[in-house]
Computed example of a mutant assay.
Amino acid sequence: MPGPFTDITDTIFSNKEVLNESYQPEAILKREQEIEEYRYALQDVLFGRDPENVMLYGKAGLGKTAVTTYMMDALNDEVQSRDEADDLHIHNVNCNSKTLFMIIRVLVNKLLPQDASQFPKRGLGTGDAFEELYQQLDRVGGTHLFVFDEIDHLDEVDTLLYELPRARSNGHLTDARVGIIGISNNYTFRKTLSPKVKDTLMENEISFSPYDATELKAILKDRAEQAFVEDGWEQSAVGMASAISAQDMGNARQAIDLLRVGGEVAERAGDSCVIDDHIETARELVQRGRLANRIRDQTDHSQYVLETIARLEKRDDTPARSKEIRETYEQVAESWATTPLTSLKSIQDHLADLHMLGFLQRDKRNQGRSGGQYFEYQLDLDPELVIETREKIEG
């Protein structure tokens, strides 16, 4: 008896992995200037000198991490043939949802000998962790590059960026050299650093600007040639995905997602070639997926408030004041077996945050001396999508 997969014999993809977010291309396209700046910032490593610090800025999907991985691999390969260069050690850490202690502990444990006990999770402080890190760095020796991705998510970033760059000049290190590479989605991240950290860091700044449609088209064409079978995609479909992404955020990740989902749409329809119609369908699916992820990222009560306004919207009861929203919010929270917030101010805070994030429209009303000023809110999204996403989250 045939099984549910028996009739699946053909695929439009020849190498679908090149369309995954985790794929690291062998060659980086359309980032020649950034690679050149990176090259000169790292050249001291080749001559056994202290590495310079580097900070990369740019929104998600602009190639910061991919370029960094490419440059670290290339530098590591080159160091092998350079007599003047020290042994190179590259340490990659994502700072999202981590404390400074957690990060330093991870680095210490990576450097410890295999037979050594792990640095404890509790009982010691961040200062103890730094002290152990310095001991292990000097024991290993060589040049150490610390790549901190999403560094702007770290609360105690001033301490990290003050301690490590000064470790050698402060006498904490003798045999090891260190350099920092920070990757941030926030262009204004440097402004948040203390003056003493800015003076200590003296970093090279590399800014990644959004891709234009021509650049995205070149990137997508390269991926399409690898990802799909021969004659499995049309040039116009690649052009359409590039144009959509360029008009939105100039984001290569979004463009590649459109191409991948477009291929999946074509395959489900039994078509042998990705065309414009498949990309159009993919755009709706990708946008819904991105929006659903943004909703999931909000706190529980922010989601309840958002769902409340979606339900009011479906009843044509918006725009609505916070007092009017409160009653339905309480019903929504209780429907999900949660005790609602009791303070109107708390609900107003959530409304303000959701407006700031682009979920809600807010209009200021003025009723003069008798009525005073107040805000009215309405949804800036499809209410069906909000309700559907909320039900999936709770289900």
Rank of each mutant, 00 (worst) to 15 (best):
P2G: 03
F5P: 00
T11D: 02
N15C: 06
L19N: 10
L19R: 10
E21P: 00
Q24S: 12
P25F: 09
L29G: 07
A41D: 03
D44V: 01
D44C: 01
V45P: 04
G48H: 05
K59Y: 03
K59T: 01
G61P: 03
L62Y: 12
T68S: 14
M72N: 03
M72A: 09
D73M: 05
N76V: 01
D77K: 15
E78D: 09
E84D: 14
H91I: 15
N94S: 14
N94C: 05
S97C: 01
S97A: 11
L100V: 01
N109F: 05
L112D: 04
D115S: 11
F119K: 04
F119T: 04
P120S: 13
L124K: 14
G125V: 04
G125F: 02
T126E: 12
Q135R: 14
Q135S: 07
Q136C: 06
Q136G: 03
V140R: 15
G142P: 03
H144P: 05
F146D: 08
V147Y: 07
I151V: 15
I151P: 01
D152L: 02
D158Y: 06
E163D: 10
E163L: 02
R168K: 15
I180C: 08
I181F: 10
N186P: 00
K196Q: 10
K198D: 01
L201D: 11
N204Q: 07
F208N: 11
Y211A: 02
D212W: 11
T214I: 11
L216K: 06
K217G: 04
K221R: 12
V229T: 14
D231C: 00
W233E: 02
A237N: 10
S242N: 02
I244N: 04
S245H: 10
A246C: 01
D248I: 12
D248G: 00
L258T: 05
L258M: 07
G263A: 11
V265Q: 09
E267Q: 15
R268E: 12
A269I: 01
C273Q: 15
H278G: 12
R283P: 00
E284A: 12
G289E: 13
R294D: 10
I295P: 05
R296K: 13
T299I: 06
H301L: 05
Y304A: 08
R315S: 07
D317L: 12
A320T: 13
R326Y: 14
T339F: 03
L344R: 13
L354K: 13
H355S: 12
G358I: 08
R365V: 12
G372C: 08
G372S: 09
Y374G: 01
D380V: 09
E384V: 05
E384R: 09
V386Q: 08
I387D: 11
E388P: 00
I393V: 06
